[in-house]
């Protein structure tokens, strides 16, 4: 399963989101199972709630091969358990998205 993750916000929120893609087929079986179970438990397609506090990170997760799921928006305090793999992968391999165009 291919998974895309983006991290936005934080003290450096004026920097475009950090993005990465991960394929669970590349993970150890245990990590892949934990991650897929954690993904199944997310609320997909729900609108993003308010930030829990100033300078908080916000994560956006989607599964490119299952577009019907929509996007799951996850606050950083929920990026634990099986989602640790995703957060760590993003932190290590993430790339800053291109800067938005100016009006």
């Amino acid at each position: 399963m291919r998974i895309r993750v983006r991290r936005a916000g934080g003290f450096a929120g004026n920097i475009p989101p950090l993005a990465a893609e991960l394929d669970t087929a590349q993970l150890p079986a245990g990590d892949a199972t934990r991650l897929e179970q954690a993904l199944d438990a997310l609320r997909w397609g729900a609108t993003a709630g308010p930030a829990p506090h100033p300078d908080a990170f916000r994560y956006e997760i989607d599964v490119p091969d299952e577009p019907e799921r929509g996007t799951a928006v996850v606050q950083e305090q929920q990026m634990s358990g099986g989602l640790d793999v995703l957060r760590n992968h993003l932190q290590e391999h993430g790339v800053i998205e291109p800067r938005r165009g100016r009006g």
């Binding site: 929120g13 920097i15 938005r100 100016r102 009006g103």
Partner: peptide, 28 residues
């Protein structure tokens, strides 16, 4: 604003205001 580093996304005036932009972006 917008010139601090190659990724800095802040606008310098309302012409560059980003609708739905991050609060750290439009704070520029």
């Amino acid at each position: 604003p917008g010139q601090a580093n190659p990724h800095d996304d802040q606008p310098a005036d309302m012409d560059g205001y980003v609708d739905g932009g991050d609060v750290h972006t439009n704070s520029g």
